[in-house]
Nucleic acid binder design. Structure first.
Lengths: 127, 127
DNA sequence: CTTTTTTGTTTACATGTGTGGTCTTGGTGT
DNA sequence: ACACCAAGACCACACATGTAAACAAAAAAG
């Protein structure tokens, strides 16, 4: 059971673009992030290469250019990030963290609230 | 309004010990983390020094040894971590992340559930 | 076919992190 | 007073990260 590789903050920005609509070319990623983050194309290239090396992206040579596709699902990566986040703040601070999380987030959709409420219900029932 | 400094994963482990019962000496931290993380005393020393340098810890010379105290509150640090966590996973994934969070955590206390439920209510009312 | 462009590869370099060794100096015990 | 030891200060070193320039190979263009 291989856990998804460690993805750094900048790398996440690249992954987001790839996850959004794979497969993508370096060009496409570069366009998006050149705009969104003011990154030079070379920077994007480096990050793509690193992500390939650490197994977060796959690619196939399509003529002269590469087509990159995610090698780890977004969900997996999010779960891994969440784990590492929890490891840091230690589970004890979960509730304050959650409060902050919920408060600073854009208004939640009704169904999201429902989903969470449901979760809480289950959790609560077990007590 | 200065935001709390960037605290790395290992540094968090040190901070946890300091927050737990300040002020502490390097010795005390070293004892705890030598056990808990199998860290050599020097490792702890380095981390303490780095935390002082980045302004996360304060100290006063008490005889030959230092007494370290937190320079940033735990809450502040947690909030900062939460922000950076959210920046990574991008707010869109919040709910799945929360679900994972809640599911993998130890059973919540009733009052914790209440607090969260209350939060959701407020959030929900605004929709 | 040669020039230009595009795209991937190699190299760079400062700073951060994980993990510790060594040096120095001020207390402490005798 | 003096030797010794522990505590902090300084040094080390490999790997990660952010950010990119330089280089090479191959495709496109003329």
């Amino acid at each position: 059971m291989k856990q998804p590789p460690q993805i750094s903050s900048s790398e996440w920005k690249v992954m987001e673009v790839v996850w959004e609509d794979p497969p993508v070319t370096a060009q496409q990623v570069s366009d998006v992030l050149g705009e969104r983050e003011q990154w030079k194309p070379q920077t994007v290239k480096t990050l793509l290469a690193r992500l390939v090396k650490k197994g977060a992206l796959a690619y196939k040579s399509e003529g002269r250019r590469f087509h990159y596709t995610p090698a780890v699902a977004r969900e997996q990566a999010v779960v891994a990030e969440t784990e590492s986040f929890l490891d840091r703040i230690s589970r004890g601070s979960l509730v304050p963290a959650l409060q902050h999380l919920v408060q600073t987030t854009r208004p939640l959709e009704t169904e999201e609230i429902e989903a969470l409420r449901e979760l809480l219900k289950q959790k609560g029932d077990k007590v």
